[in-house]
């Protein structure tokens, strides 16, 4: 199979894995924090860099 075909299939699977997450809601005790994803790039560090993606991470705690 061609690389692009496999790439497309993989991303369809990933899309399907995320569809459950979209319908889920968290309750109880929830921790929320930021993270900046997007690899290494030279220049300004941390959240000042504009080509990094801002990701909200929410975690439901057990207690």
């Amino acid at each position: 199979m061609h690389y692009t075909t496999v790439w497309n299939m993989m991303h369809k699977i990933r899309e399907a894995m995320g569809s459950k997450m979209e319908r889920e809601t968290l309750s109880g005790f929830v921790e929320i924090d930021y993270a900046f994803f997007g690899g290494r790039s030279s220049g300004k560090p941390g959240r000042a860099l504009s080509d990094k993606k801002q990701v909200v991470v929410m975690v439901e705690r057990l207690s």
Binding site: E24, T25, L26, S27, G28, F29, V30, E31, I32
Partner: peptide, 11 residues
């Protein structure tokens, strides 16, 4: 979208 209305949030 992802958090229920009555929730304890910690940030």
């Amino acid at each position: 979208d992802h958090v229920e209305p009555v929730t304890h949030i910690r940030t």
